[in-house]
Design a protein around this nucleic acid. Structure first.
Lengths: 222, 222
DNA sequence: GGATTATGAATGAACGTTCATTCATTTATC
DNA sequence: GATAAATGAATGAACGTTCATTCATAATCC
């Protein structure tokens, strides 16, 4: 942990210069990261070997240690950079929305779309977030909090607007929403047949808002 | 998979004689299984060693191979026996209920309670069900199907009774419910503070049935 | 401009360790 | 005493990590 000597300086420098001339170095960092995520997705983190990652990335085994402290660090960087970035993009996209329901729909639509478009990310995310004592513990906690905070904002806005009930235990509502989305993704990942994940967004949000029960006023909906 | 030679006969015989005189054998099988689940829960399946399991169970390393084909087989037996059994107990308990909503509440209450009472089981269950290419793939699929079928029955009954909407995409509704429960459990597992998991059942079911939207608002439809 | 030197990214064989599995031997049972 | 169960040291394959070496490119010198 404290022995992050020159190696770290090296790759932190690399990650810094996205636009500078030394494009080759930067490419390699990202190439290794992406290769690793593919291998992790295929085999799981602990069954993946550094050699496999190196082969997938088209570099030598040793090269990986010029860019990452160790195998764990690859996973940590994945959550620190890639996933966090995706979740930040959700935040930005949602800020434009008007009413709470629209924001919620937009968030979940984006979430499903992002995971559908990057299946490897989705697999690794699912795997690691359901692990105890995982290498990227702290990064996942942070990212998770970011998402939950975003949900909090939306829900509270909905309560002010009068579209969302006020007698809710917020902590539970958020888990309820996150869980539903996660499970829809998980089912998609494990399904043998292919279907459009993003198309689940609208009916899912509809369920979250109205529930499965028959409302007292309308016996027949739709 | 096809090399299940004499070893399998051995432990299948053991598992058969629950009530017979040879109680000691049976004890050892379950002792190892329980020890393994504890170790898996603490460290994760792939970081756990057979020696650790043996030490935890109070037997020699080699003894494990008298009862299980290999390390993977321990996990497979866990899902084939223990977890499946728990889920079957849900089914029995729910059959007594009257209306659909009561059954749903009962199911989720039991689910949360069972997982709260056996934290090791809960951890291993969470870990493995979110893995791709897991050793117990088939067993998990089967168990998952059992749970989903149970939900199907309840929902369909609710639709007949008029308490559950008929315009629902059943496959999605089931994921929505399973996901919410799973996430509540997952949060509980990862929480640094202790709280009563089973107490979440009622508010959770309430959310599933009525959603987060204000109920008067049936005028607005999307 | 051409020759010489310095640099550090990249390599991949080698190392040390870990760990699932085996099996010759011991212990328990009847 | 014969059979079955249990043991745990031994085995060897697998894997994360290291490091001496290579070599293309950059810097320096005349």
């Amino acid at each position: 942990m404290n022995e992050r000597s020159f190696i770290i300086h090296t790759f932190e420098a690399n990650r810094g210069c996205v636009i500078t001339g030394s494009k080759r170095k930067n490419d390699k960092y990202h190439r290794i990261l992406e290769a690793a995520i593919k291998v992790f997705a295929d085999q799981g983190f602990y069954q993946s070997t550094v050699s496999q990652i190196a082969r997938e990335a088209g570099v030598a085994d040793g090269t990986i240690y010029l860019y990452f402290k160790n195998k764990d660090d690859i996973l940590i960087q994945f959550f620190r950079d890639k996933t966090k970035q995706v979740f930040e993009s959700f935040r930005k996209a949602v800020q434009g929305g008007a009413h709470a329901e629209g924001k919620l729909r937009q968030l979940i639509r984006l979430h499903l779309k992002a995971f559908q478009d990057d299946r490897n990310m989705a697999v690794v995310y699912q795997q690691e977030t359901h692990q105890i004592n995982r290498p990227a513990e702290e990064q996942i906690r942070e990212m998770s909090k970011m998402y939950l905070d975003l949900l909090s904002e939306i829900i509270e806005q909905g309560q002010e607007e009068g579209s969302i009930r006020k007698d809710l235990y917020l902590g539970l509502v958020k888990r309820f929403m996150v869980g539903a989305v996660d499970e829809v993704i998980n089912t998609w990942l494990h399904s043998r047949i292919e279907y459009d994940l993003a198309a689940m967004a609208d009916p899912l949000v509809e369920l979250m808002i109205h529930g499965v029960g028959v409302s007292r006023k309308n016996t027949e909906r739709k």
